[in-house]
Amino acid sequence: MASRINLDFILEVLDAATSVEDLRELIKRICDSFGVNHGMYHWVDSAGDHYYFGTYSDEWVTRYQERAYVRVDPVIIGCHQRFHPVDWRRLDWSPKAAREFLQDALDHDVGNQGYSIPIRGPNGQFALFTISHTCDDAEWDKFTERHSRDLILLGHYMNRKVLEFEPDRGPDQVQPLSPREIDALTLLAMGYSRAQVAKTLSISEHTLRVYIESARFKLGAINTTHAIARAISLGLILI
């Protein structure tokens, strides 16, 4: 599986997305970049209706709906209303219906490993972003350890985008950066090291990291460089 991933590129594609079809393409790119077989975005609205798009075969998606697997799928049962990322190995696969479902999923090439990120949106909106793959446990441990934070952020950014597509919702304004966040990004953009920035702002490097992390999420950025670039392009910081 890939060790170096061009997340900036993925986020550019995400920013430019204007339709669910674009996001389906984006998920393909995510799978290619991370070197995994499948990615799925799954959304449950406040009426309890389910929508999904991703790389599972049409045959499997149809079958999943026809058999109402949403009622027995341990991923759905284990993630709904929760907020921690879930490795599929931690789910309860012991009920008979779950085992039969698993066998069917394996037969349809879903993969034996998965990592699902529950996302709690506004007003009871709930979504799941899932990556699945076929590999042994050791390889999957390595993969999740290395990539889970990126996947968590990507899942949330994708959900933000999907919410923009809702008919009665305009795009979210970028949340304003706090003065400290602006100071931190500005100094970093000027080429200061983290230690120098922390010293200049009279804060610890640890606190600085929280400012950067918070700013990064507000900006929909995956790393510091990307956050700086976005803050500049949005006119939030001037250098």
Binding site: I117, I119, S178, R180, E213, S214, F217
Partner: peptide, 12 residues
Amino acid sequence: LNDGKRISSPLI
């Protein structure tokens, strides 16, 4: 306690 600004990240 935080300049009136929100802390928001799935990693916090």
